[in-house]
Design a binder for these strands. Structure first.
Lengths: 247, 247
DNA sequence: CTAAGATTAAAACGAACGTTTGAACGAGTC
DNA sequence: GACTCGTTCAAACGTTCGTTTTAATCTTAG
């Protein structure tokens, strides 16, 4: 019982607890005392190991995004290599980008649905240090996937692709956040996405993530390949291309 | 028991300032002193007029959502009346639901893009009182639109429609939040969605809202009408396009 | 006018915040 | 033993939080 903890034990436990509490309450509403209390470590431990509360949040994300970024780039590498210079199919690109993320929700050692929910909820946080952090973490990956989509959809204006990537990220972000504020899903008797209070018979997180992936992916693909909008007079930029999108 | 102009002035100014500051900083990070300072009213004015900080946030939303809910229901009423009992087209339903909202972004007297951004950012806030508030405010409208979609897409399982409504709400929420944390859009030289610091030549908010609507709507419609996902073995509930979901 | 009530103003409340301090502890080395 | 180094600990730091209190000011009816 009265064993002393290993050096890195405290660090890891703080990260795990902070990940969960930041997800449940948000960054601002989660105090250091709440984190250290739940982690059963001293209040000063956070500042000792991480330097500040901001740095703690960054580290919570860094340890997960490191894996995610590497895996996303590797998935794209594999696809491009097997395509031998040709363009990829949009479905392949989306599978590599979103599928890799959603697979984290099935793996508890990668953060599971806790991290996915945290990510989705944090992507809309307005705090400056959060936004600059994410911008830096994501820059490389986003750029590579943008280029892949440009090549995969050569007939679609690039600005349009960028916008649709933005929309897809939004749908995914909101879906994995899983708050369902409007009770669209949870108000229907389907409790798939509800995160809190697992009664008996509730599906495990890995099942939740898999169901979500299976339903989200066709939606995203349908949105990406939807007919292009009509050009609008009030807009400065004009696009003369006719939509080749298929259904 | 009579009207006081000063009263009206202070109340409205607090609401306007709070709307903007909650949008810029989030609820937790916006202090009463920041609000009352920017509104040039006394610190105690918020508690006097609204009772508490939570009640202030609710009132900020209530005065906008009252119009939005009424307008959304009226738009659906018009469609159903002109359809004379027949089912509506999905595009009509989406136009009524999302178009009504996006039109608020063009009208400064309805809050403009400031309120739209606030709404998008608040829909993912985890605070309990916010979630219960939104659930109550949206319940009626969501239910009516759900039913309209069920009738418009009789061959699609209801659970699937609900999920796609959820995804559409997410894409819209993220798009109107306009944070673009990953710099997907803003990193491309397109500054359409960037909210802060309007230099000369920046498009006005009404233009931003219109461009957004024209691009978001086809995306949502494409996602809604995408091919259904394959049934999954790991999931308990398997449904092809035949079974009519219960309700 | 005055009285009453509604609104604003200034000051203080206790609690909670993130962070810092300096001493104490434990394990390894000489 | 004494020494070091990395870590943990209790306590306090100064600040800011949302809210309350009490008095002053304004508006309006009688």
């Amino acid at each position: 019982m009265s064993e002393h903890r290993a050096n890195h034990d405290t660090r890891e436990r703080i990260l795990d607890v902070a990940e969960r509490l930041f997800m449940e309450n948000g960054y601002e509403a989660t105090s250091m005392r709440l984190i250290t209390g739940a982690a059963e470590v001293n209040l000063a431990a956070v500042n000792y190991h991480f330097g500040s509360k901001e740095a703690l949040l960054r580290e919570v994300f860094r340890r997960r995004l490191e894996w995610l970024n590497r895996e996303r780039l590797a998935a794209l590498d594999r696809l491009e290599q097997q395509a031998a210079g040709g363009p990829l199919k949009p479905s392949q690109i989306l599978e590599a980008f979103f599928g890799t993320l959603l697979r984290m929700g099935e793996d508890e050692s990668l953060g599971g649905m806790t991290f996915l929910r945290l990510l989705g909820r944090t992507l809309t946080e307005p705090a400056e240090f959060i936004r600059t952090f994410f911008a830096g973490e994501y820059e490389q990956v986003i750029d590579r996937y943008k280029l892949a989509l440009f090549r995969a959809l050569p007939d679609v204006p690039r600005a349009e692709i960028v916008w649709r990537l933005h929309f897809m990220l939004g749908a995914m972000s909101y879906a994995i956040a899983g708050t369902d504020v409007l009770q669209v899903v949870t108000g229907c008797g389907l409790r798939d996405l509800a995160g809190e209070g697992s009664a008996e018979g509730e599906p495990g997180d890995n099942v939740v993530a898999r169901r979500l992936a299976r339903r989200l992916m066709p939606f995203l693909l349908g949105g990406l390949r939807a007919p292009l909008p009509q050009p609008d007079d009030t807009s400065g930029q004009t696009q003369h291309r006719t939509p080749p999108a298929k259904r």
